[in-house]
Amino acid sequence: MSSLSTTTAADAVPAVRVHELSRAFGTLQAIDNVSFSVAPGEIFGLVGPDGAGKTTLMRMLAGVLAPDHGRIELDGIDVQHQSEQAKRHLSYMPQRFGLYEDLTVAENIFFYGELFSVATSDRRTRSETLLHAAGLTDFRHRRAGQLSGGMKQKLGLICALIHTPRVLLLDEPTTGVDPVSRRDFWAILYQLREQGVTIVLSTAYMDEAERCTRLALVHGGRIRQCDTPARLKAAMPGSLLELVAADPRAIHGALRHQPGVLGSLLMGDRVHVRVDNATRRMPQLNNFLGEQGLDIQGMEQVEPGIEDVFVALLDEEAPA
């Protein structure tokens, strides 16, 4: 029902509106006063380390976990009090989608289609399209229990999409999924977005985070920052130097406490060093490394990735 022409959160009825949401488990405040809105057609990413509260937030959005405080609206429908209505327009895919392993691929799709009262002809055409997009057409008579991990996740996505939801909630959908399946997966997500489906997903993969239209950085049950990936990167304090070295661990250790260094992050054979001023600090760090006898193959200023932004955020909060 929401118009697709409206793309900004300001003038549209938000597809998802979360207002002052909290939930505790015993003494642990899993979600602490979280508010955000997602516009129709967005791919909204929740990024954060394990235990940040992403899954708790997702389960509340899906209506399977009741919040202690706050409210959630999907297309203006209150998830808690009008759950029957909300469920019709919602699809939730947890980290491990619940498939019936003794049923075949086609039977699982049939089952979830019937649960959502999808008309038979719609279900047929839709499942054909989705099976094809997921590369599962040849496996339709295989038992779900005999699929690979990536295939299972894709089948889960098909089951979750069989009823054409308006809002799709994906909790770490590609964790443990091979790169080919991940590509299929994202191709389906982009198609959905074109059809106007709003997607909220949580992920621990930074490359996936970059694909989202907007990101919320979640840590300790709170949303620390929420913006487009580009603006989040632009807003990162300081600038980023990338050093390539034979022994990145030694460089990482040596530079951490140098003046002007705000933070340092190991990335494979590279070290990302965040400094207050790139032009001023590059010669200084070069000299220092020379004095210490630490070889580097190169040092250049680079654009930060989402991971850098996230680590910077955590550094700023708890200076070493």
Partner: peptide, 15 residues
């Protein structure tokens, strides 16, 4: 069904 996760999956449907 609870262990396998299908219970939660069913409960997000209109059933």
């Amino acid at each position: 069904e609870r262990e396998v996760g299908t219970l939660e999956q069913i409960m997000v449907s209109p059933i």
